[in-house]
Amino acid sequence: MNFDWLAGEVDDIGNFFAWHVALSVIPVLVALVLAVPIGWLVKQSGFLRPALLGTVGLLYTIPSLALFVLLPLVLGTQILDPLNVVVALTVYTLALLVRTVCDGLEAVSSDVLQAANAMGYRRIARFFRVELPLAVPVIGAGLRVAVVSNVSIVSIAALIGTPQLGSLFTEGLELHFLTPIFTGIILCVALAVLLDSLVLIITRQLTGWQPRT
């Protein structure tokens, strides 16, 4: 590690880190807001359910580099526009979360739902006060996978020129210089661990009713 170089680049690295956080987190928030209603609809869709989940799953199989390249065609953006990365990651996170939300809602015991119905909950109230809170553990587990893999995928966007921690990797290869690469890897892993813990803590806060093991 060349600490002199690090000291000189600290502003840029801070900038990259901030971008990396934004590019990883914003898609998760957007996708979560979209995934709850979509997941609920998919769960209600009966015989269409496997087909819908299959289609959503297909989105997840598109390679990230390909998606970064194809999105400008769809969105009419420039290839360097960070919006491409945000949309691409939103698509991935959404693909993952729709299934998770659907699974989470289905894991709620039918006894509980019947009890809620018998008590006179209306559909919307039942969803927000009973089903969704009980689905949090499953949704939280899906979110953890999403944030961790997003951090890694975002760095790939460096290949098409979006600035974030991945830029340290391309820079390192061009300069044949390991310090930026190590720095990038360490910061990426640290960010992944940080976001993972954050989701874990929030999930725990929301699920005080669960037995702790």
């Binding site: 890694s152 760095s155 690469i181 890897i185 992944a192």
Partner: peptide, 21 residues
């Protein structure tokens, strides 16, 4: 498995390329 998932693949490749060069 969790630790491996959090490693950035691009960073790993360029690091190994320089090390193995």
């Amino acid at each position: 498995a969790n630790a491996l998932r959090s490693l950035p693949s691009l960073g790993l490749i360029v690091m190994l390329v320089i090390l193995f060069g």
